[in-house]
Design a binder for these strands. Structure first.
Length: 248
DNA sequence: AAAAGAATGTAAGTTACCTCA
DNA sequence: GATGAGGTAACTTACATTCTT
């Protein structure tokens, strides 16, 4: 900002910040609209040559917003009821309850756009007879509520997904155990018939191809290596009905 | 063209008020 | 009538983006 503008702003006690920094400007006691209007009239003739259009527009909108805000405040606090109310506690946080009509219109606008540009904000505030700041806050809170709801929905979805996967995992484990049992009984039958020792070959999932494999094959086709791990007697000739698929 | 700082908008978190069971 | 919970308007802070110098 140019030094001239800063001086004018300071001289008028004007804070042009936003978000959390502009709260002061929006307190009841100030008359920001006139200050903003003064700033505009002071600034525009001097800078109309070099000032980009967008900045001028933005300031006009802000001036409109503040002007409306000021009018709103004046109307509100000139009424006797509001004045009496104000006397009671000028520092107490007044909590407004939006009417059904106001809420409905806000909801409608939110469905169209979850954010408002400054012009829309002022127009909507006028329409609702609220301060632009109130409309802004409502939209902020509404976005927060939407996000919270969505998070809850996502969380529920993930929970269900987790349960399904857990169940699927259990099922696969059971299936694997059955297959192992089947392999052992078949092999035992074979070796009993041939009087050969029962092989240590057990089934496992090959991590690379995700096919069923014998532990021995997965261990580099070394029957002894598999036997070492399981402490079971080694078979001289590995037998498995899945021998083909295990050779990955 | 790049850097620094100001202005602005939004999200996230919090506080305070109001309503209702 | 007191009270605790839930909803929500209002507030604060931090951060990202845009604009200006």
């Amino acid at each position: 900002m140019a030094q001239d503008d800063e001086d004018v702003g300071l001289a008028l006690g004007l804070s042009l910040g936003s978000g959390g920094h502009r709260r002061q400007r929006e307190s009841r006691d100030e008359a920001p609209s006139s200050a903003a209007a003064s700033l505009l009239t002071l600034r525009l003739p001097a800078e109309s040559g070099g000032q980009p259009q967008v900045v001028v527009k933005r300031e006009v909108v802000r001036a409109e917003e503040e002007e409306y805000e000021y009018e709103y405040e004046r109307a509100l606090y000139s009424s006797s009821a509001a004045a009496a109310d104000d006397d009671e506690g000028c520092n107490s946080r007044k909590k407004l309850r939006l009417s059904k009509e106001q809420s409905a219109l806000l909801e409608d606008r939110f469905k169209e756009h979850s954010t408002l540009n400054p012009k829309q904000k002022v127009a909507l505030a006028k329409q609702l007879n609220l301060r632009p700041r109130q409309v802004e806050v409502w939209f902020q809170n509404r976005r927060a509520r939407t996000k919270l709801k969505q998070t809850e929905v996502d969380c529920e979805l993930l929970k269900r997904c987790c349960e399904t996967l857990t169940e699927e995992n259990r099922r696969l484990h059971r299936e694997l155990q059955q297959l192992r049992a089947l392999t052992h009984s078949t092999a035992a039958g074979f070796f009993m018939a041939t009087t050969l020792p029962v092989p240590a070959a057990t089934l496992s999932i090959c991590p690379s191809c995700e096919r069923l494999a014998t532990a021995a094959a997965a261990a580099g086709a070394s029957p002894t290596a598999a036997a070492d791990r399981t402490n079971k007697p080694t078979a001289p000739h590995l037998f498995s009905p899945f021998a083909k698929s295990a050779a990955c």
